[in-house]
Design a protein around this nucleic acid. Structure first.
Length: 603
DNA sequence: GCCGTTTTCGGCCCGACTGTTTTCAGTCG
């Protein structure tokens, strides 16, 4: 059983416990445990096998450790099965309807016997929902309206799609001259591989004007909420965009707060509290004792009609920071934490500053070792790819067209690939290879039977061989893992490309034991690719963390099928940064001279 | 259910907006 499967069980536990009205803290413990395990670089199965104590992991106590063990050993979780008997697990889908939380879902189930989205729809259409306590006509209609969103929920934007939307939103907002500062926060700023919603932060002297203008964004399908400081719209079926207008004095605190992640912020606030400080989206505040004692009476109350941010003025006097993001972290005695690190993973560790200072950046990249040409399914020639790479400041590339198994792309057989390599030799010979070199590469398929798609004696003549799986993706975990392990052990193979085969939002990763792949790559000193295509981003950041922890070197490549796609490199860099990858852990951050030597080492 | 510079019990991040209420609960991020 994989970490993600254990995490899924804990998430389901949390949802069902929440619907059954359990203690919010118990629920939080399961949610937190789920995230911790999902992000764990090591496999829980392996840790248990090695006799490691899971309770040493932050967020995992004796109960979750025991449940993990039961899951690993039996594949089942009796506590979860008990819960499922009491609460239909299909009720979880109701939580995806905007405006429905656990409490309302519980009422719908208890009072009307609703078990899933279809039954909820019938109940609303029969006018049964509006008379429930705490519901009303508006809520009933909102549920009906939100049904499609619930069905589409979980659909996230890829980074390239998010970039497009962000550009449009930025352009639209800047049409309003009342907008001063603007920044896109949330998971977008943290560089996550897919984006669930977009958070925009703005400073302005005229918040109302900005809010009005925001809600006229051309692609708006629905204005979900419109207030003085916060508005939300829905675009593209189910995608939510939130805008917050903050005062200049609070800019840094708000940026910190709305960049998240939620888990990072929870820890941050805990750290603040220990120092007698309070952090919220308005700033960092000193909490004096009188504040503490009178909190009940003077806290900015929920019932107060004064909803202006300045309702916090009682505590504003104690403000010690807030205008700039750096100062928020510094006020808490912390170094500035880069947005991509804010996942409550390793940003609090002692070596954080050292790690952050040498984290990989786009300019570290000197070459791109995965790309296609007109010989197969690319749209540009070798010469054109070379020119485009030089224009991007690279000093080497590898041409890695498909092998013959990928017939749809007119994959290369032995004869054609040897002919292409002669062409590359001729191009290199006619130019200064101390300045720029084209490597003779191939993206060779790992066939369904585990063999390589080209003869060993051909592969042995390549400078660079990436091994990939394109067919037989539905094979068993053992079969697929064995195929990849075989490729790693093959003397001519340099790297495994897109190791899990996932296509974001379209196709799940194939079943593969990544622990075994990572161990084998470490043992044979082979590289694993971060495929930078925004459709793939494969390896994921979590697998990257596991790979570098095992001492595996990475290669970040674009898999470009055109000159323009060479620009995708930054997406791969973002994944690597989130995993804390250093430049020296990336093969194609080496200079041309080093790569010439390194190619021999990885073969 | 987890955790400990207040350490085995008693806390656990915090504020905005909406809808259903008549002063607040639920939801969301």
């Amino acid at each position: 059983m994989q970490n993600a499967e254990i995490a899924d069980c804990f998430d389901e536990m949390a949802d069902l416990l929440e619907i059954s009205g359990e203690s919010p803290f118990r629920i939080k413990a399961y949610r937190n445990g789920s995230q911790v395990i999902r992000d764990l670089p090591e496999s829980v199965s392996q840790l248990i096998g090695d006799g490691k104590d899971l309770t040493k992991i932050d967020g995992i106590g004796s109960t979750l450790a025991e449940k993990s063990k039961v899951l690993i050993e039996s594949g089942h979780l009796p506590a979860l099965e008990e819960l499922r008997k009491k609460i239909p697990t299909t009720l979880r889908t109701l939580l995806r309807v905007p405006g429905l939380g656990a409490k309302k879902v519980a009422v719908l189930h208890r009072e009307l016997g609703v078990k899933d989205l279809a039954e909820l729809k019938v109940a609303c259409e029969s006018n049964l929902v509006k008379d429930l306590k705490g519901f009303g006509a508006k809520t009933q209609q909102a549920i009906l309206d939100g049904m499609a969103i619930a069905v589409a929920a979980g659909q996230r934007l890829r980074r390239d799609q998010a970039d497009q939307l962000v550009d449009q939103l930025r352009k639209h907002l800047l049409e309003n001259t009342d907008v001063d500062r603007i920044e896109f926060a949330g998971s977008y700023r943290r560089g996550k591989e897919t984006i669930g919603d977009i958070d925009i932060l703005v400073t302005s002297q005229q918040p109302e004007s900005v809010m009005q203008h925001f809600c006229t964004f051309p692609a708006t399908q629905e204005v979900i909420a419109q207030g003085e400081t916060k508005s939300s719209i829905r675009v593209q079926e189910s995608f939510q965009v939130d805008l917050r207008v903050v005062e200049a004095d609070s800019w840094g605190a708000a940026l910190q707060y709305f960049t998240g992640s939620k888990e990072h912020n929870v820890t941050l606030r805990g750290l603040a509290k220990k120092q007698g400080l309070k952090v919220n989206e308005y700033g960092v505040f000193r909490v004096d004792e009188s504040d503490e004692k009178s909190r009940g009476e003077t806290a900015p109350s929920k019932s107060s009609k004064s909803k202006s941010p300045t309702s916090n003025s009682a505590t504003l006097a104690n403000s010690i920071s807030g205008a700039e993001e750096q100062s928020v972290y510094h006020a808490l005695g912390l170094p500035y934490i880069l947005p991509e690190f804010r996942e409550n993973r390793f940003e609090w560790e002692e070596d954080y500053e050292a790690r952050a200072s040498s984290i990989i950046q786009l300019p570290d990249i000197r070459g791109d070792l995965h790309m296609h040409t007109t010989a197969t399914d690319g749209v540009n020639s070798i010469e054109e790819m070379k020119a485009a790479a030089i224009a991007r400041g690279l000093s080497y590339i590898a041409i890695t067209d498909h092998s013959k198994r990928v017939s749809m792309a007119r994959g290369l057989d032995a004869e054609r690939v040897l002919s292409q390599w002669r062409e590359i030799d001729a191009i290199n010979k006619a130019s200064d290879t101390s300045a720029f070199l084209i490597l003779k590469g191939i993206e060779c398929d790992i066939l369904e039977n585990g063999e390589m798609d080209l003869p060993d004696e051909v592969l042995a003549q390549a400078d660079w061989v990436m091994a990939s799986i394109h067919y037989g993706q539905k094979q068993s975990r053992e079969q697929i893992t064995d195929r990849i392990l075989g490729a790693i052990a093959h003397p001519s193979v340099s790297a495994i490309s897109h190791p899990t085969g996932r296509l974001l939002g379209r196709r799940e990763a194939y079943q593969v034991d990544m622990d075994a792949v990572i161990q084998a790559a470490a043992q044979h000193k082979k590289l694993l690719e971060i495929n930078a295509s925004p459709m793939r981003l494969d390896l994921s950041d979590v697998h990257c963390m596991a790979a570098i922890a095992a001492g595996v070197q990475l290669v970040i490549s674009t898999d470009a099928h055109s000159t323009g796609e060479l620009d995708a490199m930054h997406y791969g860099i973002q994944v690597a940064r989130r995993a804390g990858v250093q430049a020296e852990q990336v093969f194609n951050a080496l200079t041309l001279e080093q790569v010439k030597l390194g190619l021999k080492r990885h073969r």
